[in-house]
């Protein structure tokens, strides 16, 4: 199965940990596409730097737009206003890192 990697940046007044980011993205996918949609995404948080507030998510190629829409619809984590901006999408981690210069 083909995969896509999405680099993202979290913008928030407070620091957000890896677990909270994963939960927020999963909840957003569940809300928008339900359990059936979420099961198709094969979502995994590959990397997250809490200090620099960026990370990489992996998903299946077919659901990349679904994941992107879900990430964009995240508005709060732990009752704090949060925005997650997708910095870039690529088929390999190497290309993604080059693309968004992480």
């Amino acid at each position: 199965m083909r995969k896509r990697y999405l680099a993202f940046r979290v913008v928030s007044a407070q620091s957000v940990n890896k677990r909270d980011v994963t939960d927020a993205v999963w909840n957003a996918i569940l809300k928008l596409f339900g359990e059936y949609g979420a099961s198709q995404t094969n979502l995994a948080l590959i990397e997250y730097d809490q200090e620099k507030s960026w990370g990489i998510i992996r998903c299946s190629r077919r659901t990349v737009e679904m994941v992107r829409a879900s990430i964009a619809s995240v508005t709060e984590i732990n009752e704090t206003t949060v925005v997650i901006h997708v910095l870039g999408v690529s088929g390999t981690l190497k290309a993604l890192r080059r693309k968004v210069s992480l």
Partner: peptide, 14 residues
């Protein structure tokens, strides 16, 4: 907090 990138909007428009 309400601004997103153009490709994010395109994904939401789906």
């Amino acid at each position: 907090h309400l601004i997103r990138g153009p490709y994010d909007y395109a994904a939401i428009a789906a």
